[in-house]
Computed example of a mutant assay.
Amino acid sequence: MTEHDVVYRDSAPRSGVERVVEVRLPTAYGEFTAVGYRDRISGEEQLALVHGEVAGGRTLTRLHSECLTGDVFASRHCECGEQLAAALREIVAEGRGILVYLQGHEGRGIGLLAKLRAMKLQGEGLDTVEANLALGLPVDARDYRVAADILHDLGVASVRLLSNNPLKREALVAHGIGVAAQVPLLMEPCPENIGYLRAKRERLAHDLPHLDGLLGRS
């Protein structure tokens, strides 16, 4: 633990995160500093990838919910893996920015096995919202409090948020992080994920204008 951590905890006890470790992390996209956190409330370990000087305002930021099937195995059922790679590229091109990788967000917060069960139901004709409800699970159980705490710890006052999801913007604002702009992160759809994207736009209010030619305006 560094002196910074002690001062932050004593002077700002409202924070729910503890900064545990920082390490240089060279990647295929560019060089980052991996900042590891522990959520004091849930006990979960969380990670922020930081590129350049990020303190202050209008920091390009991605809140990325973990998605094992998309991020690791490049599943075509969703666009998560492509969004992760695109966000890292955009942050490096910008010269400064943060990607907060949120553990505990698998399947919009329902967990890996429940997500796989929901995917099976989607293969049988339900959409992503209907599948969660059929399992007796919430449509979206994600909490962005820990992401805001991490951004506060990194000295970020406001962000340009890489997201198509208006709920992320609302959550950050509710937790004291300004959102100066919402920056689209639009991936080319494929036959395997077009139904999923349709449901995200029509049922979850995601801003996906690139689907207009395929789906028509909702």
Results as ranks from 00 to 15, higher is better:
residue 48 A to H: 04
residue 39 D to E: 03
residue 44 E to I: 01
residue 23 V to N: 13
residue 26 P to Q: 02
residue 36 G to M: 03
residue 37 Y to W: 11
residue 43 G to D: 08
residue 35 V to C: 09
residue 38 R to K: 15
residue 21 V to D: 12
residue 37 Y to H: 10
residue 50 V to D: 07
residue 27 T to W: 12
residue 27 T to V: 12
residue 49 L to Y: 02
residue 34 A to G: 13
residue 24 R to N: 15
residue 25 L to K: 10
residue 26 P to C: 02
residue 25 L to Y: 13
residue 51 H to F: 10
residue 46 Q to R: 11
residue 24 R to V: 15
residue 32 F to G: 07
residue 40 R to Q: 03
residue 42 S to G: 05
residue 37 Y to T: 10
residue 25 L to A: 15
residue 38 R to I: 14
residue 43 G to C: 10
residue 48 A to K: 02
residue 47 L to H: 02
residue 50 V to S: 12
residue 33 T to H: 10
residue 48 A to Y: 02
residue 31 E to W: 02
residue 31 E to Y: 05
residue 26 P to L: 04
residue 49 L to R: 00
residue 36 G to N: 05
residue 25 L to Q: 14
residue 51 H to E: 08
residue 26 P to R: 07
residue 27 T to I: 12
residue 32 F to K: 06
residue 25 L to D: 08
residue 27 T to G: 11
residue 34 A to V: 02
residue 24 R to S: 15
residue 36 G to T: 03
residue 44 E to W: 04
residue 35 V to N: 09
residue 44 E to V: 05
residue 44 E to T: 05
residue 21 V to P: 00
residue 30 G to N: 06
residue 30 G to L: 00
residue 33 T to F: 07
residue 49 L to W: 01
residue 29 Y to W: 12
residue 50 V to L: 10
residue 22 E to I: 12
residue 21 V to E: 12
residue 23 V to I: 14
residue 36 G to V: 06
residue 24 R to K: 15
residue 22 E to W: 08
residue 36 G to I: 05
residue 48 A to I: 08
residue 21 V to F: 11
residue 42 S to L: 07
residue 26 P to N: 07
residue 38 R to T: 14
residue 43 G to Y: 06
residue 43 G to E: 01
residue 28 A to E: 14
residue 30 G to I: 00
residue 42 S to Q: 11
residue 46 Q to K: 15
residue 44 E to K: 10
residue 41 I to A: 11
residue 35 V to S: 05
residue 43 G to K: 03
residue 50 V to H: 05
residue 49 L to S: 01
residue 45 E to C: 03
residue 49 L to C: 02
residue 32 F to T: 08
residue 38 R to W: 12
residue 48 A to W: 06
residue 30 G to C: 00
residue 22 E to Y: 09
residue 42 S to P: 08
residue 51 H to P: 09
residue 33 T to D: 13
residue 46 Q to N: 14
residue 22 E to F: 06
residue 23 V to C: 15
residue 47 L to S: 02
residue 39 D to C: 03
residue 41 I to Q: 08
residue 28 A to R: 13
residue 22 E to M: 13
